[in-house]
Simulated scan of single mutants.
Amino acid sequence: MSDKLKIGISIGDVNGIGLEVIIKTLAEVKILDYCTPIVYGHTKVASFHRKALNLNDFSFNVINDASEANPKRSNMINCWEEDVKIELGQSTETGGKYAFLSLERAVNDLVAGHIDALVTAPINKHNIQSENFKFAGHTEYLQERAGAADSLMFLTSEDLKVGVVTGHIPVGQISQKITIESIVSKLKLMNDSLKKDFWIRKPKIAVLGLNPHAGDDGLIGNEEQTTIIPAINEAKALGILAMGPYAADGFFANKSYLKFDAVLAMYHDQGLIPFKQISFENGVNFTAGLNFVRTSPDHGTAYDIAGKNEASEVSFRDALFAAIHIVKHRRESADLASNTLVYAKLSRDRD
């Protein structure tokens, strides 16, 4: 039996670039030295994209369930029987329907422990909505499936790691959603993830302000004084090295992020715009705080280039390797903690 990790892959919107970046990544045979990929989709849909890319030398090994995966091949589980109408570059109800079927089957296996981690290709957050999926995005859906009280949208790259207090919500709701409790919760998740998932012993975290110039001492808003600073102080009391609040524009402009292990932004665009500007080619979206590992590339469905063989697979490949590394880090951390407990017990018994 192979000891390589089984990495599940959901295909995302069938009309976007998901299968293009998946196939381009898996066409590199060296990938199989590091993991056993299991794609959740359908071979006919994959063949359509493969032909559009003119990758005639690549094919999937079709299996019925994860236990049958061939460690020397890229595997695919067919998640439906019917033919699917593909309209590249278009947002359609069909695109959302089959994106969910792929995601649901993959997450079922993830929760059951049949695969070791999940990499999700991009969905369209509008057309995937249905009776079965009423979430703002992957993060919220996965948090519910994990049964977690909270989670952290954590964008990571070699140079920058950014998490957000509020994710996929309207801008008008941001201020009311930012509380001392929510900031402290995200800081706990970020601090724990940096230690457990990225092996940073004493993480140093920068916290951004909400208002321009971090409020200018209350002149341009008082959330910094009433909420953010008290949250930072509470986090410090818990042993978390949190600092701030920093004015977001100057913080990124003068590259202050290089002095920290991670940055906690107050809302989606405050963190993701600079992250994508700095790390778009190799950025990875990681959902921290869950009892399983999920990563994704840091881009969307890219309908405008779907089927044109123009999509870069770099971010998807980085997401795949990030999933592998995080799983291994977690297991090694768990082994270390277990060994420490055993050693402590033996020491007590000798005493």
Rank of each mutant, 00 (worst) to 15 (best):
H329W: 03
D298P: 08
D249A: 08
N56R: 13
N132H: 10
D150Q: 08
E181H: 12
E224P: 09
D351G: 15
A146E: 07
N78E: 11
L341I: 13
E93T: 13
A148H: 04
Y303E: 00
H325M: 15
K24E: 02
P230S: 02
S347A: 15
R330V: 03
V171H: 13
K255P: 01
Y303M: 03
I23H: 01
L241Y: 15
T25C: 04
G12V: 03
L19S: 01
A112C: 05
R145E: 11
F292P: 08
I220F: 15
I7T: 12
K195S: 10
F100L: 06
N211Q: 05
L110E: 07
N108T: 10
Y343M: 13
I17K: 06
T226F: 11
S185Q: 13
K259T: 12
E158L: 11
I326A: 02
I305T: 11
S333F: 15
S175I: 14
A235P: 04
V39W: 09
W199Y: 15
W199D: 15
L19P: 02
N132W: 03
K134I: 13
G89F: 00
H325P: 12
I22N: 06
A311K: 01
F321C: 02
S151T: 13
S185L: 05
L258Y: 08
L152Q: 04
V207H: 01
S312V: 09
L187D: 03
V171N: 11
I128Y: 01
F316N: 05
A265E: 10
Q173W: 14
G307K: 00
T227L: 06
T340G: 12
L241D: 15
S102P: 06
F275S: 07
K255F: 10
I128E: 03
D298I: 03
G137C: 00
F275N: 02
N127T: 15
A306I: 04
W80Y: 06
I240N: 01
A69R: 03
L26R: 04
G95P: 05
T166M: 06
C79H: 03
G300H: 00
D261H: 10
S296H: 05
D304V: 10
N15S: 11
M243C: 14
S315I: 00
T166D: 00
L194E: 05
V342R: 13
I9K: 05
